[in-house]
């Protein structure tokens, strides 16, 4: 169990919390989906959220970029600090927040537009490129970082939906990183992909954490063990256990965690 604080000095040896979640509860109408969650998400590390279906891990993920705002009955209490600032503060603009906190979804969901337009869209609406050349450069760089550039370099004008599932998911990752976010949220990004495509995405996650803080929801414990530095185990709306992945998987403190990672619940 590690504890961390926001640190202002740039000492690389101290762990630095990008996001500090405290006393967060989420209710859908009368149903309490998350109960008093406290979790620190470390900068430039991969944090995996695991737990059985319906445990609230996706709900938690969607609190971090306020996608839950889209659901009218959803009510979030508590505080989530991004770089020390509360993202639920009244003056926060969700569009600015989502620029900082990108998201990749369970099912690849490229826009039914060309590969180029898929990536350029976010850049355009935020006005991040001053001219066509800069935009081209951002698109290329995003594709390179998402490990897709070589495969699609000669057909940027074909529809994003014509790619294979794994390529579509990497396109979505490229779309997310094109607007240079600090945090990327991934909601079971490999659940619709075959093992080879999954391996590619996992490899990519390793590379991406150099630049971005990653939070990933996954059903696969092997995946959590492979890609993440920290793991948080959710169960029935509670955050049961959190810690470094290696410690949590080898020596869980809570009986429920142990039961889940050994396959007895879930």
């Amino acid at each position: 169990m590690v504890t961390y604080t926001v640190n202002e000095d740039n000492n690389p040896d101290t762990v630095k919390a990008k996001i500090i979640v405290d006393k967060v509860s989420v209710a859908y109408g009368d149903h309490l989906a998350l109960n008093d969650i406290a979790l620190d998400i470390i900068s430039n590390k991969v944090t995996a959220l695991i737990g059985p279906s319906g445990c609230g891990k996706t709900t938690f993920l969607r609190c971090i970029n306020r996608m839950n705002d889209l659901i009218g009955s959803c009510k979030v209490t508590g505080s989530i600090l991004l770089d020390g600032y509360d993202i639920y503060a009244p003056e926060v603009d969700v569009e600015v927040l989502r620029r900082k906190v990108g998201m990749v979804f369970q099912k690849p969901n490229p826009f039914p537009k060309s590969i180029y337009d898929n990536i350029a869209y976010g850049v355009k609406i935020h006005g991040l490129a001053s001219d066509k050349e800069e935009l081209d450069a951002i698109v290329e760089q995003s594709l390179v970082r998402a490990g897709l550039f070589e495969e699609v370099a000669d057909r940027l004008d074909v529809s994003g939906t014509s790619l294979s599932g794994g390529q579509q998911q990497r396109l979505c990752i490229a779309r997310a990183i094109a607007i240079s976010p600090d945090v990327i949220l991934m909601d079971e990004p490999c659940s619709a992909l075959d093992p080879i495509a999954t391996a590619k995405i996992e490899e990519l996650i390793h590379e991406l954490k150099e630049r971005y803080t990653i939070v990933i929801v996954t059903h696969s414990m092997q995946q959590a063990a492979r890609v993440s530095d920290y793991t948080a185990f959710f169960h029935e709306g509670d955050l049961v256990e959190k810690g470094e992945t290696s410690a949590l998987f080898t020596n869980p403190n809570d009986k429920r965690t142990e039961a889940y990672i050994t396959g007895r619940i879930g």
Binding site: N65, M67, L70, E95, V96, L97, R98, R99, G102, M103, F105, K107, N109, P110, F111, P112, Y121, G122, I125, H126, C172, R175, A176, I179
Partner: peptide, 13 residues
């Protein structure tokens, strides 16, 4: 599909 809306919202539209 909802996924298209989510995709747009997630890039800050």
């Amino acid at each position: 599909p909802l996924s298209i809306r989510e995709a747009a919202f997630s890039v800050g539209a």
